[in-house]
Design a protein around this nucleic acid. Structure first.
Lengths: 336, 336
DNA sequence: TTAATTTACTAAAACGTTTTCGTCAATAGA
DNA sequence: TCTATTGACGAAAACGTTTTAGTAAATTAA
């Protein structure tokens, strides 16, 4: 391993000078800087992140806390997209990312402990149970934190405009003439509440009375659970003519149920999803859905986090807007 | 930050003793060990990974090198599954994972340099271009490496049984009476070659002559490209009665083409995928496919890597077997 | 000319561990 | 009883950086 000392010997200057030359201090003469940099690259020098961290207390590492137990974290396309975007933006800023978990080796440690252990400069939190005591401990600690789709006081957060999304989808269905619109929503998180609010607002604006049976809970990203919810809706005496699904992926569960009953989309029943992931575009029929800008969500959260780490950033709640994606899964409904 | 010194003061012993007590050296009396451990947890002590690394040269960090440019790395369900499994097995062994990239901050650095910078104890490589000079540099370096689905001499590798997979799928189609079987395969990587070999072997065993047009190249995980390949097959004078697709996800592209031509699966045409990801199970009709044990692939690669890091492991090529997943996408074909 | 400032550099401490080599007492062996 | 061994611990160096507080020479100011 080639160290600063090797360079200092090769150049005939002190290690301190090498360090300063490499880090752009202005008290080193241009010729020395030049010499040091050249020999550094000649020797293929790489600074040792650990040694640097030990002195500076900056690891250039940001922690990522995504889903704990539900397991669908890395395989959930929407979150994969966010993760990917977080990774890229972090790297662009000179940071690596570390997954924060709470069982490393045989030793149980809390999320916060894991962060301290790895000296994370900050953490991006998404898709976890925000009531979890360990998450709260982390949030309230001195580690800079940015949350996605959930907001704490005094902390920056990036939220997708969930209310707008479901509002627009529901409005669209109403505009197409549907009056019996059901909404299969996910578990009752904050995100879900926003979406329900958006749905309700649309219903109200179009003067549509929605029977309570039309609002049914299922599990995000879970085709089975959504299939059952769909079945329940289709079994109603007055089944809906349009269904809004919790997300694009789980919609496929509903689709299965619909097709197996000999119904067709969109002739017999109109549907829309949520997320606007790749999958939604290649399904047949192409799914009408709401695109969430995962890329922007990821980038913005890293941007805010780096601000929080490096400077004095003021806590801010950033709303990332989405986009209506029209497919072929909704048809005009003629009122009788 | 609470350090070993704090504990040593609290206990009235030297830092050396604390370190030894905490790390289970046998030269410390049981009472002292007990005392040290108790005060450590009382003070909520966490060792500083960087300081430890500096002395021991072990970061307890393993690098993960997945896809560079193609971008479909984290959003590719199959690789997500491997990544997830790698992460879990790593954590179970006391390691964190770090994504290896070659542009961190504004500074361009090679994969190897990134590994050195972060002091990765070892690296798992998958789904990259194994001819890439930077990848080769890493592979040939002194950093322990395990590769997935590609083998180098003197290095451990974990490979999925690709030949067997496509052999079994093709055989199944033949057994169902199909004689015009096409294979849309991915880019010509080693994996693809194995799959083609498996396919050919089955054709040979069943005495089926496959015209060259029946073997067509498309891009993995790319619905568009696969759709075009499908169109080409259906445009043939003698179109196939069964098509094997490169993977479950991209099959959807083919499905779109098939449905748009008014054909139905499996009545008019039989299909099968590859991977056996979640998606394949919820599609309608359920896809006949080959399940690759991503979980095992991930776990085994970490197991071998940890062996390579910690002890003297002998380089070994581990074959992970898959499983035939029968769906409803193939029908018996009556020969005329 | 002398004093003050600037320029370009260095010595050395520090970050939090681990580990080698002692040391000193207590115990065992002869 | 005297020596050899064992047990339990500590001092201090080391890992590779960064950074503070210098210092000596060169330059400028008075």
């Amino acid at each position: 391993m080639v160290t600063i000392k090797d360079i200092s010997k090769e150049c005939g200057v002190s290690p301190a000078t090498v360090s300063k030359a490499l880090n752009g201090y202005d008290e080193i003469s241009p010729e020395t800087v030049e010499l040091v940099k050249r020999t550094a690259s000649k020797l293929n020098y790489m600074p040792n992140a650990a040694a640097r961290l030990l002195k500076t207390n900056r690891s250039h590492n940001i922690g990522v806390l995504f889903v704990d137990d539900t397991m669908s974290g890395l395989t959930h396309e929407f979150f994969s997209l966010i993760l990917n975007s977080v990774k890229e933006e972090a790297e662009a800023n000179g940071y690596d990312i570390t997954f924060i978990s709470n069982n490393i080796g045989r030793q149980k440690m809390s999320f916060l402990q894991h962060c301290k252990y790895r000296n994370c400069d900050g953490v991006v939190i998404a898709s976890v149970d925000f009531q979890n005591p360990e998450v709260l401990e982390l949030v309230r600690s001195d580690v800079p934190v940015v949350t996605i789709d959930y907001s704490f006081d005094n902390l920056s957060s990036i939220v997708s405009d969930n209310q707008e999304g479901s509002y627009r989808l529901a409005s669209y269905l109403a505009e197409q003439g549907h009056r019996r619109i059901a909404f299969i929503h996910g578990e009752r998180t904050l995100v879900t509440q926003k979406r329900i609010r958006g749905f309700n607002r649309a219903m109200q604006e179009y003067g549509i009375k929605t029977p309570p049976e039309y609002l049914v809970e299922a599990r995000y990203h879970n085709a089975d659970s959504v299939r059952k919810a769909t079945a329940a809706l289709l079994d109603l005496e007055e089944p809906p003519t349009a269904i809004m699904f919790p997300d694009d992926f789980s919609f496929i569960g509903g689709q299965t149920e619909i097709l197996e009953r000999g119904l067709s989309i969109p002739d017999d029943i109109s549907v829309c999803g949520y997320d606007g992931i790749n999958l939604s575009k290649i399904l047949n029929p192409q799914l009408t859905t709401w695109y969430q800008n995962a890329d922007k969500i990821g980038k913005e959260s890293v941007r805010k986090l780096v601000e929080a780490i490096e400077g004095t950033s003021v806590a801010e709640q950033i709303m990332v807007s989405g986009e209506f994606l029209s497919g072929n899964s909704v048809r005009k409904w003629e009122s009788k």
